[in-house]
Write a protein that binds this DNA or RNA. Structure first.
Lengths: 110, 110
DNA sequence: GGCCATACCTAGCCATCCTACCTATTGCCT
DNA sequence: AGGCAATAGGTAGGATGGCTAGGTATGGCC
């Protein structure tokens, strides 16, 4: 069945996460909330996409994680960008611009 | 292995094809060429992505195909948008704008 | 003849995403 | 005290979709 697609993001999740973590170390749940908020609710990251993506990024050494106590007194896994992650973010941004511009040109056509 | 990603597009192929065929009935090979050209070579559609995508769109009744002789005297399978396809195109465009705007907001953040 | 561009196709791999679950804690409301 | 929502983390399994790499065939040009 063709699925809803009303929510989501395809292939751009890494970009969104890396860009969001760039703003400062943050735990997973907060990353998803921030993406939703900053995108003015246009983007919604389901948890079933979020956590696997974080693990992938960590495995690729683009993020590193540390368990920390948040200000609410709770434990959370806080992610921060590695140097490699920062480079990857730049690449992802460039790729996105290229894709986005390319599609823009196609859609501009009357 | 993390793959190259330098070429391509994800989930947006249907949109690109539908939009391109909207300009007028066209055969598969020409669709790929036109996408490449109109996008100013930012986008490249490999044949191994193109033809399966066309078949999917045809199966979903978003495109209909007919074998025809081209001006070069060769047989080619010419695709045209169905009414359903036109509606799907509008939806895809709206989805793209939403995604694109959402990511735009995230990337704007300093 | 040989080669390139055109034109179509498929198998099989791989990555990613999502739905649907599960666990646990904190704080609020009744 | 009980219940519930929000917070915070996670996994399994299926589905989709793109790509590489292969294949077929024709027309035009050198």
């Amino acid at each position: 069945m063709a699925q809803d697609k009303s929510d989501l993001l395809q292939g751009t999740l890494d970009l969104l996460i890396l860009k969001t973590v760039e703003a400062g170390p943050m735990h997973g749940y907060a990353i998803a909330q921030r993406i939703n908020h900053v995108s003015r609710a246009l983007l919604l990251v389901p948890q079933g996409s979020l956590y696997p993506a974080l693990h992938r990024l960590e495995n690729r050494d683009l993020l590193e994680a540390e368990w920390m106590a948040t200000d609410t007194g709770r434990e959370a896994k806080v992610y921060r960008l590695t140097r490699k992650g920062r480079r990857a973010l730049e690449r992802e941004i460039a790729d996105w611009r290229r894709l986005s511009d390319g599609i823009g040109f196609v859609l501009e056509r009357p």
